[in-house]
Nucleic acid binder design. Structure first.
Lengths: 153, 153
DNA sequence: CATGAACCTCACGTTAACGTGAAACGCCGG
DNA sequence: CCGGCGTTTCACGTTAACGTGAGGTTCATG
């Protein structure tokens, strides 16, 4: 039984995300997420946040069609944002200029993603129509076939 | 200059579809479309319909994320529908039962595509929100940075 | 403490989807 | 009729994204 912590071993994490264990290890190797924490003996443990991030990666891959390399860049940018947020009110670290530039770059990434999403939605809309038309044409043919019942023997 | 026919050689066809010549030949080799017609000396000629079909293939690949193998199956089913339509009122060929079964199978394919399209649209919608939130959070951080102007030197 | 299931790390294999020449041939303007 | 650019067919190369053992370790349970 699971402990109350909500942490998962790789087997459960894999089946929850519908990925394989190999894929999870591969993504970790590529640096798509910070190496999962480990148990005493070396077994990986995935936090709920880890699982959520993995789902996000899956979406970027399957829905938006990004390569893992592209995803890595985006996530790195995302992590930079979180980093900046944490450090925002501390002195030290980066200068305001540097922070601003990073944030602007980050916004570019997000806006780019939004653009891609919108394009994809538009093309999906077109395809919906095309498919709907095809279904109707098929139904028409089926109806015609039905009306022919008893005709040519 | 192009002849009035609207037929294109592979170079033009490639740039119109934003694919490479190699990719067009590869798709033909895989049987994604009927071998393009040829000029006397063997140069391929693409009709407007060919180009349209190639665009359709691109959409299935890029927007819906199907593999070329899956696309081939779908298109084969599509072609079957057209075939059935042409033969519908002729005697000979397939029996009503066979035609009906093919049409039903075909409809399944189309309905399956529709399902995928809808799923993808839903997930895109979710991502839109996520991205929008991120953009707003970035803007917030940018604003905070702005307000800090002059503070810590 | 034994045992079986789940996990670990290599490391090589596989597949799809093309890329990249090489060598030859076709097309067309001068 | 010739020069150059576009096109042809092999055929091997490449890359991303994993799959698939092998051989060993760890965890939980009786």
């Amino acid at each position: 039984m699971e402990r109350g912590t909500g942490y998962l071993q790789i087997g459960e994490a894999a089946s929850r995300t519908s990925l394989t264990q190999r894929t999870l290890r591969y993504y970790e190797e590529l640096g798509l997420f910070r190496p999962a924490s480990r148990m005493e003996g070396g077994f990986r443990l995935y936090s709920p946040d880890d699982v959520e991030r993995i789902d996000y990666i899956k979406n970027l891959r399957d829905v938006l069609g990004f390569s893992l390399a592209e995803i890595k860049e985006m996530l790195a940018a995302e992590d930079t944002r979180a980093q900046i947020k944490r450090e925002l009110h501390q002195t030290g670290g980066l200068s305001r200029e540097e922070r601003r530039n990073q944030l602007l770059k980050l916004k570019e990434v997000a806006v780019g993603q939004m653009r891609i999403v919108n394009e994809k939605r538009a093309r999906l809309k077109d395809m919906r129509h095309g498919i709907q038309d095809r279904i109707e044409r098929i139904d028409t043919l089926l109806a015609e076939l039905g009306e022919m019942a008893g005709a040519t023997s």
